[in-house]
Amino acid sequence: MIINHPLLGPRDAAEFVYLGDASLLNRPSRDIENAAQAFTDYLYLRDNPAGVHQELWFHEQGDRSWLVVTRNTLTHDITRVELAHDIVRASVQQNDPNHNSEHKSGLDQ
């Protein structure tokens, strides 16, 4: 498989480490009422569709960026590749327009 890295262009999937279901980007808050159940679900349950799947790949042998890859699990076709950083920043800004993502986004570190 070839992953078309948004910054580096087409790269062999063997350069990457796979983490799975991109719902891992949405970590629940520890302050909510049923946090134990929410964290169990977050840690252990996975979207596992036969078809289009959003998943996290880490470019370990490259620029060490996290990517969100949209891939079909039936055909292995990759239709979209984004930086996870951009997705998280967009979702943070959407939820909190006053949020200064340069300083508060956890993915910056």
Partner: peptide, 18 residues
């Protein structure tokens, strides 16, 4: 192999990846 797809029809999400 297909557990997640079948159980999704019952509304269940599983601790499984295929």
């Amino acid at each position: 192999g297909s557990s997640s797809c079948v159980m999704e029809q019952a509304g269940m999400r599983l601790p499984i990846e295929s």
